[in-house]
Design a protein around this nucleic acid. Structure first.
Lengths: 338, 338
DNA sequence: CATTGGCACTCGATACGGGTGAGTGCCAGG
DNA sequence: CCTGGCACTCACCCGTATCGAGTGCCAATG
C-alpha cells in the first residue's frame, strides 16, 4: 500500500496538473505545496507512483501527469465533492425557476450546467417509465380515426394516431375515455397494463376491436423508449480541451451526435449515485480521453432521468461533481413543484 | 467590366482553392485548367482581379485565394446549382420516407443534410404560423383547471394549462369544444382570431370569463414564436475547417448554440429562394468566416420553415446548393404526404 | 495591344545546430 | 528513510541558411 505522503503527492500532482495543464515536476511541487520534504524525496515518491501506474511522463526528462488510474484513485480516495456556495445555489434555483415548460426546464438546465462546469452538458428528458399518468385523452379525427393523447405528471405530452378496425361512435368514445381515465389517472406507467387488461369486456362486441387497438397503442406509448431524448450544450467548451485539437475534438463531437451512445453513457449507471467515468473507462472509443460525470435526477425521491457533463480527463473533479449534484437536486425540485 | 477570360480565371481559382485548400498560383492554374494562355498572362489577370478585390494574397509571394467578394461573383455569375444524381435523389427519398413522426423527419433531415454536404446542418421545425389547425381539444383536469391541446396539420402538438376564473361544467366544456372545432378546424392560424371573436357571446354570463381565457390562451399559442425550434447536426464536420483551429471553430460553436442567432440567420431570407450568405455578409460576427446556404421548405407550395448548412467560405457552392435544394424539396414532399 | 518568356526579388516553409533549463535517476552521507 | 549533490537527457527556443513557389516588371513578339 502507498504511504500517506505518497497519496498526498498524487493529490498535489492532480491538482497542479488540472490547474496548469502542464506536466508537473518535483521542484515545482515542493514549492507550491508545503509537503515538508525535499524535492529529492518527492522524486522517489513519484518514481514509486509511476511504478504503480498512477502517473506517467509524456517523455523522458519531463514532469509527470496523472494517468486514468491516477485520477480514479484521486476521485475515489483523495477528494470529496465540493459543495456549491450559498450564492451559487441561490443563482441556480433562481435561474431554473424561470422555466415555463418542460422544454424550457431542460434547456435551462443544460445551459446552466455547461456554464457552471465550463464543459459539455448533457441532460436527458425525464423518462416516461417512472412517471405517472395525469390524463389520457381520445379525440375523434374521422369516423374510424382516433388520436390518443397521453399527458404525464412531468408535463410531457405524447400523441399517437390510431386507425380503428371499425367506426367508433361518439358515445362509445366518451365511455372509453371516462373508464380509461378513472382507471389509470394518477397511476404509474408500470401498473397500467394490468389495470386496463379487462377493459374490452365492458364494451359491445362491435367496439371491442377498437378498444383493444387503443389499449395496445397506449401500452406501446408507455414503454416506447424512443422518447428518451436528450439535449446537449456547451460544445464550445470543447475548444478549451488541449492544444492538439482536431485529433481530440473530432471523435468527441462525433460521439455527441450519436444519441444512442450518450444514452448508454448516462444509462449504465446506478440510479441516484453520482458516477464518474474516467478516460478509458468509457466504452465508446471516441471518449477515451474524456471523463463523464453523471447522476440521476427526479421529482420525488426517485430518479426519472440522468444528466451529466463530458470534459477532459484533466478536469476539476470536486468542482464538477459539486455542480452536477447541485443542478440535479434543484432540477428535481423544480419538476416536483410543477 | 472584366473580360471573359478573367472571369474564367476567377472560376478556376475558386475551384482549385476549394479543392486543395491552398493558395493557387499562376503556374498551377495553367497546368490544371486548359486556359490556352501562359502563366504570365494569368499573372496579369490575377493582378487585375486583385485590384478589383475578388482575390487576395495571404502574404506577399504566395498564391491567391478568393475574397468574399470573389465567392459572391462566383456564386452569382460563374456557376449554377449542381443537381443531384438520380441515385442520390432516390437515396434521399428512401431515407426520409422511413420517418415515423415529426421529430424523426426533422432528425433525419438534419443528419442527411450534414452527411451530403459534410457540413453543419440546421433544420427549423415547421413553423406554426403558416399551418392550419387540425383539432383543438379541451380537457378538464380539475374543476377550475383546463388543458388546451392544439394539433396542427404538420403533426405538431402544443399544450397549455389554463386556470379558469370560475368552475366550468362538463356540458359547457363539451359545448365549447364542439363550437371551437367547428369554427377553426382546417383553418389557417392567421384566420383563427376573427373566427372565434364572438364566441363568448354564445355562452351564459357565468362561463364567459372562462371562455375568454381559453380563447386568449389559444391565440397566444398560435402566435407564440418560442416554438420556432431547430435542430442542428454534423458539428463534427467543423473539424475539417482549417488548420488554425481554435480561433475559427470556437465562435462558430458558440453561434450554433444560440438559437436566436440561427433563427435570424435562416429567417432573414426570402421564402422559397435559395440564399447564400458569404463570410462577412453574415450579420453575426462569429460567422464571419463561414458561409450559410439556406432555403425555405414546406408541404404545399408554400414554405413553412427553413433549412440550411453552415460551412467554411471555402466550400463547394454548386454541390452544397444542390444538396440543400434537393433535401428541401423532398422533405416538403414527405410533410405533404403525412 | 494583348501575349509571352525571362529575370530578379520576396518571403514562408523547412532544416540544421547550438545553447538552455527543467526535470530525472542514482548515490553517498546524514 | 530522508536529503543534497551530480551527471545526464531531452524538449524547447532561437538564429541562420537554404529552398522554392510565386510574384511583378520589362522587353520582345505576333
Amino acid at each position: 500500500m502507498l504511504s500517506e505522503r505518497r497519496l498526498e503527492v498524487l493529490r498535489a500532482i492532480v491538482q497542479d496538473y488540472v490547474g496548469t495543464e502542464e506536466p508537473v515536476g518535483s521542484k515545482a511541487l515542493t514549492e507550491r505545496h508545503s509537503l515538508g520534504v525535499s524535492p529529492a524525496t518527492v522524486r522517489n515518491d513519484m518514481a514509486a507512483l509511476e511504478d504503480e501506474g498512477f502517473i506517467a511522463q509524456p517523455h523522458t526528462s519531463a514532469g509527470r501527469i496523472p494517468t486514468d488510474k491516477g485520477y480514479r484513485l484521486f476521485v475515489d480516495k483523495l477528494t470529496s465533492v465540493k459543495p456549491m456556495t450559498a450564492p451559487e445555489r441561490r443563482a441556480i434555483q433562481n435561474f431554473l425557476e424561470g422555466a415555463v415548460d418542460l422544454d424550457d426546464v431542460v434547456g435551462r438546465t443544460v445551459r446552466l450546467l455547461a456554464q457552471l462546469t465550463r464543459q459539455v452538458a448533457i441532460v436527458q428528458y425525464p423518462s416516461l417509465t417512472r412517471s405517472t399518468v395525469r390524463h389520457v385523452e381520445l379525440l375523434s379525427l374521422a369516423p374510424a380515426r382516433l388520436m390518443l393523447v397521453l399527458i404525464t405528471d412531468t408535463g410531457r405530452v405524447e400523441q399517437r394516431m390510431i386507425d380503428c378496425p371499425a367506426p367508433f361512435g361518439e358515445s362509445s368514445l366518451a365511455d372509453l375515455r371516462a373508464r380509461l381515465n378513472s382507471r389509470v389517472a394518477g397511476r404509474r406507467f408500470a401498473d397500467v397494463p394490468q389495470l386496463v387488461q379487462d377493459l374490452p369486456e365492458a364494451f359491445e362486441q362491435e367496439d371491442r376491436g377498437t378498444v383493444s387497438t387503443v389499449l395496445s397503442t397506449l401500452l406501446e406509448t408507455l414503454v416506447e423508449q424512443k422518447e428518451e431524448r436528450l439535449m446537449i450544450g456547451g460544445t464550445a467548451n470543447l475548444t478549451r480541451f488541449g492544444h492538439d485539437f482536431p485529433l481530440t475534438i473530432r471523435p468527441v463531437l462525433e460521439a455527441l451526435e450519436e444519441q444512442v451512445v450518450l444514452l448508454k453513457l448516462l444509462g449504465e449507471v446506478n440510479d441516484s449515485d453520482m458516477a464518474v467515468r474516467i478516460g478509458h473507462e468509457n466504452a465508446h472509443e471516441g471518449l477515451n480521453s474524456t471523463s463523464v460525470v453523471s447522476v440521476g435526477y427526479g421529482s420525488g425521491g426517485e430518479a426519472v432521468a440522468k444528466l451529466g457533463v463530458v470534459g477532459p480527463t484533466r478536469m476539476d473533479y470536486p468542482g464538477t461533481m459539486g455542480a452536477v449534484r447541485a443542478v440535479a437536486r434543484y432540477v428535481g425540485q423544480i419538476l416536483a413543484e410543477s
